[in-house]
Write a protein that binds this DNA or RNA. Structure first.
Length: 821
RNA sequence: GCCGAAGUGGCGGAAUAGGCAGACGCGCUGGUCUCAAAAACCAGUGGUUUUACGACCGUGCCGGUUCGACCCCGGCCUUCGGCACCA
C-alpha cells in the first residue's frame, strides 16, 4: 500500500477494471427485487457541466447504495441527441449535425466514466440513432392510429431566431425558452398531440405521486389550469345567431352590463361588415394583433375596447346587452367571448369606469351596502344575491349551483369544465429531429407511413440554412415517395418532431435497448418499470415530466403498459451557484468539471458536491470546500495506512472503554448513514457522519491499548460506507486491506444493536426550561429516580433554594425540567 | 392577485417525533513538529459581559400554545420559484 493517496493513478486503474469486469451490468431477474435509478438523460452539448456532475453523482449514490442493499439495480444512461444546437453548429462550422453530435457523445461518455458513475453502458441509447427514432416514429403512428395525433391550422408560436414553431410549454414570458427571442404568432398547419384528452387524468393522478415534490405537482396543476363554469348563449338581437360565453361566475349573470368578444372572434367581422363600425373595428383589431404576446397578455396593459354596434339578449333577465371588443379577451381560452360584470370583476370594473358602462351590484356583502357610483373596486368576496330575480337572498355560493341548474333546464347553456392546457404542437421546421412519418397523396390524402417502411431516415443531401421551412424540403430524394394506398406519387411530410417526443419514452427503451422488432418488450418494461427514483432539474417540471406522464398513460390505454405513472419518486436537484447566482457562461462564473477532476480527482469532486448541500437545495460552489473534501480523503487514506498491519492478523484485544466507545461509534455511524441515504437522501449529513467516524478513529489511535478487532471493524465499515460516495478510493482501500472482490459487490453493513447499548448516559437538568446542569446517569434509569437524582444535585439544590418547586418533568434518557416559582 | 418553498454563526450547512441550538466542513486564532515554511496533528472559535466560576442575549419580525418552541398555531416582513387580463 502506498503511503500517499494518489488519486490520478488509482481512479484510472479502477475505471478500467470496472469496465472490463462489466461490474454494473443489469439483467432482469424476476427472483430479485428491482430498483430503477434514473437521471434525466442529457443533451450532448459536448462537455459535462457542473449541474450534470451533481445530477449524476446523486443518482450514482442511490444506485450504488441500492445495489449493496441487495436490489437488482438498473442504472442506464443515454443521449437526448436530436435538437437545434447540432444544426446551428453545422451551419456555423460546416460540420454535419450527425458528426458533431456523435463526437460530443464520445467526449461526454469519456467524462462520465472519469466521474466513476456506475452506468450499465450495455443499455446506452441515443435518440438520434435510427434504431431509436424508428420507434419514436412508430409511437407517433400508434398515437395517430388511436386518434391522439391530428393536423390543424392554428395561430402558433413562432421563434424567428430558431426559425421554427414552439409548443406552448416552450414559451416562457412570451419568449423562446431556448434563446429568449420574443415569440410571434403565425398561422400554420401543424401536427398536434391531443394531450388535452388526458388533462383530467394528468391532474387527478398527481394524487398518486406522494413521492413527487409538492412544488412540481403544483406547477403541473397550474399548467393544466382546470376551471369549472358554465357556457351560456346570448341571442343576438334581431338575428337567429348567438354568442357563447364561458364564465366561472354564473352567480353574477344578472349583473352583466356588456359582452366582450376577442378581437379575433369570427363574429366580429360578420357583425360589422358594411356598417359604420367596420373601419374603426378593423383598425382596433389590427392594433391589438400588432402587440406582441407579452404586451397582449400582461395585466399591466391598459384595457381598451370598442363598441361594435350590435346587441344581444341576456337570457336570464331579457335585458339588451351591448357587444364590445377588447384587448383583454383572448381567443384561445374558453369561447373567446366573455360577459362583462363590472361590479364583481376587476377587469370589467376598470373597463366599465373607463367607458362609462353601467355597474350593477348583484352580490352584496353582509355588513354594508355597495354603491355602484362610489365603488372603487370590484367586489369578489362571498355575499348575498341581490337584483337577481328569484335568486335574491341566497348565498352566492349556493346560487351558483341553482343558476347552473336553471341555465341547463332552460336550455340557455351547459356546465363546462375548461382547461388551460393546450394540445401539444410537435412539428418543427428543422432538420435534426425524427422525421414525422406521414405522406401526402393527391388522390388519397394524408397517409401514415406503413410500419414496415420505418424508419423514415433523415436524408444527408440537405441545405441547413434556416429559411422558415424545414431543410428536408431541399432534399428531392426525401420528398418523393410512393403512396401506400394507391401506389401513386406522394410527398413526404418534411417537418421533424419536437425533441420532447423523443425524451417522452426513453426510460422505456432503456428496459429493452436492443430490441429489434419492438420499441420495448412488455416483459422487460413490466419488470423494470416504473422508475423508482428519477432525478433531474426543476426546469422540466412541466415540459418533459408532463409529456412523459401523457405518453405513459396513452401507452397504458393502448395496452402496452400495466402502470400509468412512469416516475414513482422524483427528486429535483438544486442549482449549482457561485457568488450567489447560477453558474452560467454569460455570468462567467463557471467551473469546469474536467479541471476539477484533473486537480483533485473524481472522488473529491463527488464528495464535495454531495457534502455541500442536500440534493434538492441550491449549492454554493467553493474551491476551499473542495479542498476540504480532498483533505478528508487524504485523512481517510492515512488512517487506513496507519492501521494496515492490523489486517494481516486476526487477533483481538481487550474490550476497554475506549474500544467499546469506538465500536459504538462504528455502529452509530452505520445507522446514521443508512438512515440518511435511504430515507432522506441527505447525503450531506451521511458524509458528516462518516467524517465523525474518522475523527473518532483518529482519537482512538492515541489510545495506548489498541484493540485490533474493533479497529478492523471500524475501518471496514468506514470503507464500505464511503463506497457509494467515493467509489475509487473506497475500492483501492478495500483491496489494500486484503479483499479480492470489489467493494461495490459488498453488502451494506448491518447495525449491531448490542454495540449501541450504553451503560451511562448524560442527561440535562433544566430549571424553568433553562439548562443548569448535566448529569451522568445509568442508562435505562426510571423517570422517578432520574427526577430524584436531579433534585438532589447540590448545584440544583442551591439554585432552587428558597423557591417553590411547582412541577418536575422527567423525560427518560433525555432531561429533567424543574419548574419553580 | 393566486399557489408553493425558504429565512439559523464570518461562510456552506446540522438539529430525523416539541426536549442540550450551531453536528460536520470551510475560514480564523493558538499550539506541536521544523533551521524555516508547507503539509500533518492537537486545542479553541455565536454575541455581550466577567480576572475567573458564571450570567444574560440569541434560529427574519410581533404575538400565542406549552414545564419546554428553529420545530406547533395566528398575524406580518423579506427572498426565490410557478401561474396569471384564463373570464
Amino acid at each position: 500500500m502506498d503511503e500517499r493517496y494518489n488519486f490520478k493513478q488509482l481512479e484510472a486503474k479502477w475505471q478500467q477494471n470496472w469496465r472490463e469486469a462489466n461490474l454494473y451490468a443489469s439483467v432482469a431477474d424476476a427472483g430479485k427485487p428491482k430498483y430503477y435509478a434514473l437521471a434525466m438523460f442529457p443533451y450532448p452539448s459536448g462537455n459535462l457541466h457542473i449541474g450534470h456532475v451533481r445530477n449524476y453523482s446523486i443518482v450514482d449514490v442511490i444506485a450504488r447504495f441500492k445495489r449493496m442493499k441487495g436490489f437488482n439495480v438498473i442504472h442506464p444512461m443515454g443521449w437526448d441527441s436530436f435538437g437545434l444546437p447540432a444544426e446551428n453548429a453545422a451551419i456555423k462550422h460546416q460540420i454535419h449535425p450527425s458528426d458533431w453530435t456523435w463526437d460530443n457523445i464520445a467526449n461526454m461518455k469519456r467524462q462520465l466514466n472519469e466521474m466513476g458513475i456506475s452506468y450499465d453502458w450495455d443499455r446506452e441509447v441515443a435518440s438520434c440513432h435510427p434504431d431509436y427514432y424508428k420507434w419514436t416514429q412508430w409511437l407517433f403512428l400508434e398515437f395517430y392510429r388511436h386518434g391522439l395525433v391530428y393536423r390543424k391550422k392554428a395561430a402558433v408560436n413562432w421563434c424567428p431566431s430558431c426559425a421554427t414553431v414552439l409548443a406552448n410549454e416552450q414559451v416562457v414570458d412570451g419568449a423562446c425558452e431556448r434563446c429568449d427571442t420574443p415569440v410571434t404568432k403565425k398561422d400554420l398547419t401543424q401536427w398536434f398531440f391531443k394531450i388535452t384528452d388526458y388533462a383530467q387524468t394528468l391532474l387527478d393522478d398527481l394524487e398518486k405521486l406522494p413521492g413527487w415534490p409538492e412544488k412540481v405537482k403544483s406547477m403541473q396543476r397550474n399548467w393544466i389550469g382546470r376551471s369549472e363554469g358554465v357556457e351560456l348563449r346570448f341571442q343576438l338581437e334581431g338575428s337567429a345567431e348567438d354568442i357563447t360565453v364561458y364564465t366561472t361566475r354564473h352567480d353574477t349573470i344578472y349583473g352583466v352590463s356588456y359582452l366582450v368578444l376577442a378581437p379575433e372572434h369570427p363574429l366580429v367581422d360578420k357583425l360589422t361588415r358594411g356598417t359604420a363600425y367596420e373601419a374603426p373595428v378593423q383598425a382596433f383589431v389590427e392594433k391589438t394583433q400588432g402587440l406582441n404576446e407579452i404586451a397582449r397578455t400582461s395585466t399591466e396593459t391598459e384595457k381598451e375596447g370598442l363598441f361594435i354596434g350590435s346587441y344581444c339578449i341576456n337570457p336570464l333577465n331579457g335585458e339588451k346587452v351591448p357587444i364590445w371588443i377588447a384587448n383583454y379577451v383572448l381567443m384561445e381560452y374558453g369561447t373567446g367571448a366573455v360577459m362583462g360584470v363590472p361590479a364583481h370583476d376587476e377587469r370589467d370594473f376598470a373597463f366599465a369606469r373607463k367607458y362609462n358602462l353601467p355597474i350593477r351590484v348583484v352580490i352584496s356583502p353582509r355588513d354594508r351596502e355597495l354603491d355602484p357610483d362610489t365603488m372603487t373596486d370590484a367586489y369578489h368576496d362571498p355575499g348575498i344575491m341581490v337584483n337577481s330575480a328569484s335568486f335574491n337572498g341566497m348565498e352566492n355560493k349556493a346560487a351558483m349551483e341553482k343558476i347552473a341548474d336553471y341555465v341547463e333546464d332552460q336550455g340557455y347553456g351547459v356546465r363546462k369544465i375548461n382547461f388551460r392546457l393546450r394540445d401539444w404542437l410537435i412539428s418543427r421546421q428543422r432538420y435534426w429531429g425524427a422525421p414525422i412519418p406521414m405522406l401526402y397523396c393527391e388522390k388519397c390524402g394524408t397517409q401514415p407511413v406503413p410500419e414496415k417502411d420505418l424508419p423514415v431516415l433523415l436524408p444527408t443531401d440537405v441545405e441547413f440554412r434556416p429559411s422558415g421551412e424545414s431543410p428536408l424540403t431541399t432534399s428531392p430524394s426525401f420528398l418523393e415517395a410512393t403512396c401506400p394506398a394507391c401506389g401513386g406519387k406522394a410527398r413526404r411530410e418534411t417537418d421533424t418532431m419536437d425533441t420532447f417526443v423523443c425524451s417522452s419514452w426513453y426510460y422505456l427503451r432503456f428496459c429493452s435497448p436492443n430490441s429489434r422488432d419492438k420499441a420495448f418488450e412488455e416483459k422487460d418494461v413490466n419488470y423494470w418499470m416504473p422508475v423508482d427514483q428519477y432525478v433531474g432539474g426543476v426546469e422540466h417540471a412541466i415540459l418533459h415530466l408532463l409529456y412523459s406522464r401523457f405518453f405513459t398513460k396513452a401507452l397504458r390505454d393502448f395496452g402496452y403498459l400495466k402502470f400509468d405513472e412512469p416516475f414513482q419518486n422524483l427528486l429535483t436537484q438544486g442549482m449549482v451557484c457561485m457568488y450567489g447566482s447560477k453558474m452560467s457562461k454569460s455570468k462567467g462564473n463557471v467551473v469546469s468539471p474536467e479541471e476539477i477532476i484533473a486537480k483533485y480527482g473524481a472522488d473529491t469532486a463527488r464528495l464535495f458536491i454531495l457534502f455541500a448541500s442536500p440534493p434538492e437545495k441550491d449549492l454554493e460552489w467553493s474551491e476551499q470546500g473542495v479542498e476540504g473534501s480532498y483533505r478528508f480523503l487524504h485523512r481517510v487514506w492515512r488512517l487506513v495506512y496507519h492501521y494496515r498491519e492490523m489486517f494481516k492478523t486476526d487477533g483481538a484485544g481487550e474490550m476497554d472503554d475506549a474500544a467499546r466507545s469506538l465500536r459504538r461509534m462504528t455502529h452509530v455511524t452505520i445507522k446514521r448513514v443508512t438512515d440518511d441515504v435511504s430515507a432522506r437522501f441527505n447525503f450531506n449529513t451521511a458524509i458528516s457522519a462518516i467524517m465523525e467516524l474518522v475523527n473518532a478513529c483518529y482519537a482512538y489511535r492515541e489510545h495506548p491499548e489498541q484493540n485490533p478487532a474493533v479497529v478492523r471493524e471500524a475501518i471496514t465499515a468506514l470503507i464500505v460506507l464511503l463506497a457509494p460516495f467515493a467509489p475509487h478510493i473506497a475500492e483501492e482501500l478495500w483491496q489494500s486491506i486484503g479483499n479480492g472482490r470489489s467493494v461495490h459487490l459488498e453488502s451494506w453493513p448491518e447495525v449491531d444493536p448490542e454495540a449501541l447499548v450504553q451503560d451511562e448516559i448524560t442527561i440535562v437538568v433544566q430549571i424553568n426550561g433553562k439548562v443548569r446542569e448535566r448529569l451522568a446517569v445509568p442508562a435505562g434509569l426510571e423517570q422517578k429516580e432520574m427526577e430524584t437524582l436531579a433534585l438532589e444535585e447540590p448545584k440544583i439544590q442551591q439554585l432552587i433554594a428558597g423557591k417553590q418547586v411547582v412541577k418536575v418533568i422527567g423525560v427518560p434518557g433525555k432531561l429533567v425540567n424543574i419548574v419553580v416559582k
